[in-house]
């Protein structure tokens, strides 16, 4: 069964299982987050809290993590990834003060191979949060 989109917008994320195919057991798993602002005249500020089994693995918070090492797939089995991304938007010459919507993408890769990617588009509330709580399965 395909993995479900684990991204929740502006609410606490429920636990979603994320199955890593067993063929990647011995492969390093990477996480990438992409943020795109969908209207001109705006800038964004972002912070990404990435905790793996309650341990902060991205203390810098920003910019968006790119190819962040999680662990080998076999070691991730049964671990929780708690992800909370906060995006604030600032006017940068926009004619109005209605914040730009934001597209948020989560990408999981095994080595150079894409396992799954998920995306969601926010509403116009500011700030907006993208939360995920993932339980890894790899068997």
């Amino acid at each position: 069964m395909a993995n479900q989109n684990p991204i929740y917008i502006d609410q606490r994320a429920d636990n979603e299982e994320f199955v890593i195919p067993s063929e990647f057991k011995e492969v390093m798993i990477f996480l990438t987050i992409k943020v795109e602002i969908l209207k001109g005249g705006w800038k964004y500020a972002s912070g990404h809290n990435v905790y793996l089994n309650r341990k902060d693995i991205y203390m810098n918070r920003s910019p968006e993590p790119e190819d962040l090492k999680l662990n080998y797939a076999k070691n991730l089995d049964g671990l929780y990834l708690d992800l909370r991304s906060h995006i604030s938007r600032f006017r940068d010459g926009s004619d109005d003060d209605i914040p730009a919507k934001v597209e948020y993408e989560l990408i999981f890769e095994a080595g150079d191979t894409l396992i799954d990617s998920f995306s969601r588009i926010s509403a116009e509330n500011n700030p907006t949060d993208f939360n995920s709580y993932v339980l890894f399965k790899c068997q």
């Binding site: 809290n49 905790y51 309650r54 341990k55 902060d56 929780y80 708690d82 909370r84």
Partner: peptide
């Protein structure tokens, strides 16, 4: 959030 995520 740090407290929440380290104690969840």
């Amino acid at each position: 959030e740090h407290l929440d995520m380290t104690s969840r």
